[in-house]
Simulated assay, not measured.
Amino acid sequence: MNRVLAGIAVAAFATGSAHAGPLDVFGTFVTQKEGSHIRISDCGDGTPCGVIVWIDPASVSDGKTPETATDAKGARILGLTMLEGFRRKANGWTGGTIYNPKEGKTYGSRIKLLADGVLEVKGCIGPICQTQHWAPVESTSGMAD
């Protein structure tokens, strides 16, 4: 009987780990508006940081390439950290910031992974937030992730 219970416990644990929760935000996602890729990884303290790792050439203007594109402040966009400073909550990450390269502005942010694997990203000014949904980047898409 103990072997049966142990087997059920192992199977339940394995099944549970296959489903990502709202805190499992690590991975590479494509932004909703610009189509750029953001890689979210550990900042070094267990919290998520999002770095721009690929820029859609169609979103670049002024005769620049994705490699030479700059933000509103003149900083190079590729490699720029745009998500950081989050605190863990039971239903996601809050208290972070998101940087908008086109505007050169930083906003309050909350992020969480939805059940379908899409990252819900909120950019906020005070209590008013705008929500975007970033799909995971498929490694077979041929684009850098």
Rank of each mutant, 00 (worst) to 15 (best):
I52P: 00
F86D: 05
V53W: 03
T97N: 01
T131A: 08
D116C: 06
G79D: 01
K122G: 12
P66G: 00
K122M: 08
L80N: 09
G63D: 01
V121G: 05
G74K: 04
S59A: 10
K89G: 06
K102L: 06
G123D: 06
K64N: 07
M82P: 00
G123C: 08
R87Y: 13
T65G: 00
V121P: 01
D62W: 07
G74C: 13
K73Q: 08
G123I: 12
W54L: 05
K102Y: 06
S59I: 11
Y107K: 02
D71H: 05
V53K: 06
V118Q: 09
K73E: 08
I52Q: 03
E103L: 13
I111H: 04
F86L: 09
T65V: 01
R76N: 07
P127G: 01
C129F: 15
N100W: 08
V51Q: 10
C129G: 15
G92C: 14
S59Y: 04
T68N: 12
V53L: 07
S59Q: 12
G108V: 04
A69P: 08
E103F: 12
K102I: 13
G126E: 04
A69L: 02
I98S: 08
L83I: 04
T68W: 09
L80H: 05
I52H: 01
K73T: 11
E67S: 07
L83D: 07
V53D: 06
G85H: 03
T131N: 13
T70D: 07
E120A: 13
S109F: 02
I111A: 05
P101M: 15
I125R: 12
I55Y: 00
G74P: 00
V121Y: 10
K73A: 09
V60S: 14
G96M: 09
I111D: 00
Y107H: 02
W54D: 15
A69W: 10
T131S: 11
D116N: 14
T94D: 14
T68F: 07
T94V: 13
S59C: 07
